[in-house]
Amino acid sequence: MIRTVAETASTNDDLAALARSGAPEGSWLRADRQTGGRGRQGRGWQSPPGNLYASTLVRLRPGDPPAPTLALVAAVALHEVAAVFAPRAEIRIKWPNDLLAGGAKLSGILLEREGEAVIAGFGVNLAHHPADTPRPAASLAALTGTAPEPAVFLDALAAAFARWLGRWRGEGLAPVRAAWLAAAHPIGTALSTHAPDGAAVEGLFDGLDASGALRLRLPDGRVQILHAGDVFLL
């Protein structure tokens, strides 16, 4: 079920409230505009009309893979849909779930826990992208010359997310991890990582471990495993 509102502060916050009141898995909320959109670690997310701002709800079940790996599910589903709308663009996933086009950020995904539920929020630059961010940004309109309607894009995303969620639940993390790696930047890509405590480490992308954590090969040949933090391409 997809519900659309003209404006709200945050689709994630609204869907978290709905989760507390018993909303079922598969509920989606889309806003034409957000006044308090945010990215990871509380960063602001610009929300002009014409882009996608939507959140969905996953009810965790006994036997599900670890909840944090839903970040990979969301990334794979979004990459699949973005590739359909921009088939000639080289769109890659950056750990854990950003989409980059030519190194410029196309989207962001924010997962937040609400009891035994997870809220997955998607912000996708369809018609517009900010020009004043520290790192370059992109939009589907800039890549292809046209922007899909947010409602049309979300219909495709909701179907893809449900399909990948079913595989995650029924087959485990392995097929999701394989699809993520196939869509990611190449092994050996130079990365800079910033841990939650602010420590910065540079190295080479060395894939994902079995749990979906980032493998970073350091200059001395050791491999560091990152479960959280910010990652930037060098």
Rank of each mutant, 00 (worst) to 15 (best):
M1K: 12
A9I: 02
T11Q: 03
D14T: 14
L15C: 09
A16F: 05
A19V: 12
A23M: 12
E25C: 15
R30L: 09
D32F: 02
T35H: 01
G39N: 07
G39W: 13
Q41K: 12
G42V: 04
Q46L: 10
P48A: 04
N51P: 13
V58A: 01
R59N: 12
G63K: 03
D64N: 03
P65A: 07
P65D: 08
V73Y: 05
H79T: 13
A83F: 05
A89D: 08
A89I: 04
A89E: 12
I93D: 00
W95G: 01
W95Y: 14
N97Q: 07
D98L: 10
L100P: 07
A101Q: 02
A104C: 03
S107V: 12
I109T: 15
L111I: 05
E112D: 01
A117S: 10
A117R: 09
V118N: 00
V118R: 00
I119C: 03
F122V: 15
F122D: 14
G123Y: 07
G123L: 06
N125G: 11
L126D: 05
L126P: 05
A131C: 13
T133S: 07
T133M: 12
P134L: 07
A137V: 04
A137G: 04
G145N: 13
E149I: 08
P150M: 01
A151K: 11
V152E: 14
F153D: 02
L154T: 03
A156L: 13
L157T: 07
A160R: 00
A160G: 08
F161E: 13
R163V: 11
W168G: 13
W168M: 14
E171M: 06
G172W: 02
A174K: 05
A179H: 05
W180I: 08
L181Q: 06
A182D: 04
A182N: 03
A183P: 02
A184G: 06
H185P: 09
I187W: 02
G188F: 00
G188V: 04
A195P: 01
P196D: 06
G198D: 03
V201N: 01
G203N: 04
F205L: 10
F205S: 06
A210H: 08
S211P: 09
G212S: 04
L216N: 00
D220G: 12
G221Q: 04
V223A: 11
A228W: 06
G229R: 01
V231T: 10
F232Q: 12
L234A: 15
